[in-house]
Computed example of a mutant assay.
Amino acid sequence: MHGTGKMVIGISLLGLYSSLYAQISPPGLGEANTASWLAFGVKRKLDSLGKKQTLSYIALGRKSSPDDYNLVSKQAIIVLNHEMYHSFAPNQQYSYAVSYRRQPKYESSAPYEKEAIEQEVRVYGRYAYTFALGKRWKLKNTIRQEFRKFFDSDFHQTEENFQLRTRIKSQLTYNVSPKNNHKLALSAESLFSTSYLHDSEQKWTPFGYKEVRIAAYYMFSIPHSPFTVDIGYVDDLIRGSKSIRKGGVHYLAADLIWNLPL
């Protein structure tokens, strides 16, 4: 193959990997000191321009007990997620998704034994607008609305019947190097929610602020492959929790994304 042809293919692949970049951020895992999050995703273009894409992933989370710092001590969550993205206008994107989550619940006092399993089916929609701040900086602002339905281990109704949650996020990304698409991303996300309780009164809880998540991620493409890697740190500050007095729940997170062409 001629050098010009190789260059064109290389530029095309770099553009593909760049357009498909997105880290898989960990969910909240409740009371803990530390936690870990590993995810594997498959992302695919649905059109030749790359305006429509899908991301499917499976992920596992583990966490410490409230009185230690072993971030793999206890099983925390299993997640299956499928999301569709559409970049419908310059700098604008919307997406919608469906997700299944299975999460153990632990006793609130030592030795923190597992007492139940909670299952969740979640659907959500997201809108994002990205500002270009010069050649290397981008600011992405996102609003995401979720509907969360909860079940016990046998798919029976739980005390918290369902929840409506709004998430507002800002992420600042710096393009470190175009070679292998190295990027650094810093973000802050605030979460607000209201729940419908299935008890004698069957009432809504007040809508309000619940937590904030602060994250730093380093992202890059693996040379000569369709894979991208995201490695990050997340601090989850949960309102009214014991962990917030220790600076929040500290996560180490990593994900591997396989980028497929059309």
Rank of each mutant, 00 (worst) to 15 (best):
M7L: 15
M7I: 11
I11N: 06
S19H: 00
L20D: 06
A22H: 08
P26V: 14
G28Q: 05
N33M: 09
T34K: 00
A35M: 06
W37I: 15
S48T: 14
Q53C: 08
Q53P: 01
Q53N: 09
K63N: 03
K63I: 13
S64M: 10
P66V: 02
V72C: 02
S73P: 04
K74N: 11
K74V: 08
Q75H: 11
Q75K: 10
A76Y: 11
L80N: 09
H86D: 14
S87M: 06
S95W: 00
Y100M: 06
R102G: 10
P111N: 06
E113H: 08
E113F: 15
E113S: 14
V121R: 00
R122I: 13
V123A: 07
V123F: 02
R126W: 01
Y127V: 04
T130M: 02
T130Y: 04
L133I: 11
N141H: 07
N141P: 09
N141S: 12
N141Q: 07
N141G: 11
Q145M: 13
E146H: 13
E146T: 00
F151I: 02
F151C: 04
F155H: 10
T158F: 01
T158M: 12
E159F: 12
Q163F: 03
I168N: 06
Y174R: 09
N175S: 15
V176L: 15
V176Q: 04
S177K: 02
N181Y: 00
N181W: 02
A185N: 12
L186M: 15
A188S: 14
S190H: 03
L191V: 13
F192A: 03
S193Q: 13
S200R: 08
Q202H: 12
Q202E: 09
K203L: 03
K210C: 08
A215W: 01
M219E: 07
M219I: 15
S221A: 15
I222H: 08
P223N: 00
S225N: 10
S225T: 13
S225V: 01
I231G: 11
D236H: 12
L237F: 08
I238M: 10
W258S: 04
L260K: 12
L262P: 08
